[in-house]
Amino acid sequence: MNGAESLVKTMLASGVDVCFANPGTSEMHFVAALDSHPDMRCILCLFEGGTSGAADGYYRMSGRVAATMLHLAPGFGNAFSNLHNARKAGSGVLNVMGDHATYHLKHDSPLKGDTEGVSQAISHWTRSSLSSADVASDGADAIRAARAKGGQIATLILPADTAWGDGAAPVTAASAPPLHRPSEADLDA
């Protein structure tokens, strides 16, 4: 099982079974993993803004976290405005942002961007998987973060080599901590 497959299995084990996708070349192993699991509903979107808007709408209608698949920093940038709306609405969205292979980043290719920087500008939680063995646990942490506080934006950056390398066993995301609710007495006071 490669890193991408471990991520899809982690998502499914954790109750995330919808992914709105606008993939590029660096996400092909993740696309293959999504395609090999018929219980994962993958919906191809023609523009990243539609992808993030659909994930936000899905959360608002169902109360369940949906995933997005976005291509590198430029694609994530195209999704930014609807992620802003999702953040303000308290929607739970799990973004999986592809990136170049870790050993290729030094070449500063035309699509290379500050993936962590663009993510941190809108996401409550951001992590870049450092190895294919980390992808499943990083994915579980991202799902937990997306469910926290009633819904947040969580972004997992998936470099291509972490998607195609040997992955670890799937992980089930821990439940989000319960929301603090004031008591009736506190409200009356």
Rank of each mutant, 00 (worst) to 15 (best):
L156N: 03
G57C: 03
A54D: 06
G75V: 12
L187Q: 12
G49A: 11
H29G: 08
G167Y: 04
D161L: 00
S52Q: 01
R41A: 05
G77P: 13
L12K: 08
I153K: 02
A160N: 05
A176R: 03
L34P: 00
L187M: 12
A66Q: 08
H124M: 10
H71N: 12
V135I: 10
S6G: 15
M97R: 01
A133E: 15
D161N: 02
G139T: 14
L179N: 03
A163Q: 12
G3K: 10
A21S: 13
T115P: 07
I143F: 01
S26T: 14
R127C: 11
H104L: 11
F76S: 05
P159C: 09
E27K: 03
W164M: 12
A148D: 05
P178I: 09
T162S: 02
N95D: 13
A140P: 07
G167R: 02
D114V: 05
A33H: 02
L70T: 10
I157V: 08
G63D: 06
S6K: 07
G165P: 10
H29M: 15
V16M: 01
L70P: 06
A13D: 11
H124C: 08
S81D: 14
S128E: 14
L105H: 14
A133C: 14
L105D: 11
A174I: 07
L111P: 08
T10G: 02
R147Q: 06
A67D: 04
A160L: 09
K88M: 14
L187R: 09
I143K: 08
G75T: 11
T126L: 05
A55T: 03
P23V: 01
G98K: 09
P159V: 12
S131G: 05
G139H: 05
C42N: 13
V135R: 05
V8Y: 11
A67G: 06
P178L: 12
T25S: 14
Y103S: 08
S175N: 13
P178G: 07
G165Q: 05
A154E: 05
A160P: 01
L130T: 13
T155H: 03
I153Y: 00
G15Y: 03
A13P: 03
M69L: 15
L70V: 13
I153A: 08
L12I: 11
G90M: 06
R64K: 15
H29E: 15
A160D: 05
A142H: 02
P170C: 03
P38F: 04
A33G: 00
C42A: 13
H71P: 04
P182M: 10
A73S: 09
P74M: 12
S109N: 14
L12V: 04
G150C: 00
A189L: 14
G57F: 10
Q120R: 15
S137W: 04
D17C: 01
A32Q: 09
D188K: 15
A54E: 04
M1S: 13
H71V: 05
D114P: 06
